[in-house]
Nucleic acid binder design. Structure first.
Lengths: 112, 112
DNA sequence: ATATTATATATCGATAATCTATATATGTCA
DNA sequence: TGACATATATAGATTATCGATATATAATAT
């Protein structure tokens, strides 16, 4: 099943920052990692990722460096900053609260 | 905590249809019900809900009737249609798949 | 040799869903 | 009478996604 793009909205930044909290990565690697880890549920598009990385960098949540890979290709490696780590924690709490609330509504836990 | 609006995007229609699958409701009632059930996490805005109801009706997923309430006020009551019920089932599967995939990424279940 | 595919980054325009602000109208309570 | 809650509605701004397109190199297949 293909996930509607509006469902993705709002959580992509969190997912990217989470990957970078584990290790330094380059853009293309992030797309592949997300696809693998989600069992092909996510297929983040390059046209979404690169502008997002630029805005995260502009916001100070990630930093980048260019380096040559073993195969001789140039890659742009991104790392999460301290500020980004704090932002990520907030986003994770928000996700937890949000998904919990959706499930509450769906499960019909109404009668408080 | 206030939930970012882009996180809400994509799930609002599902939540509304889920409420209508339980019983007929009018707009204002849906806003209050969502707020209660989510422990004040959701506060769907009227400016979001009414256009959404109109588009759901146009799509054939809900039908409406106007009726006078006990207090003499006019209300517009919405019901889910058979087509809407089918659409809702699909949306619930999508939500389940999506939220599961997000949690997989966050939990780092990578090594397949 | 040459063509295709995969890798790698980037930008632009279209689409879609949210919000805020605003408008209208009625019922309730002080 | 005035303030607030109820009830529906529309317009404009914002924002995040996508598809399409562009560029360039490495790896593979024909």
């Amino acid at each position: 099943m293909k996930i509607d793009k509006s469902l993705m909205a709002g959580s992509t930044g969190m997912l990217i920052l989470h990957l970078l909290a584990e290790k330094e990565m380059y853009g293309y690697e992030m797309i592949e990692t997300l696809e693998k880890r989600s069992d092909n549920t996510f297929s983040l598009k390059a046209g979404t990722l690169y502008p997002l990385l630029h805005s995260l960098e502009k916001a100070g949540y990630v930093s980048s460096r260019e380096a040559e890979a073993e195969n001789g290709r140039m890659r742009k490696y991104y790392s999460i900053t301290d500020e980004g780590t704090g932002f990520l924690e907030g986003k994770k709490s928000e996700w937890s609260l949000f998904s919990g609330a959706v499930n509450k509504v769906l499960e019909g836990e109404s009668c408080v």
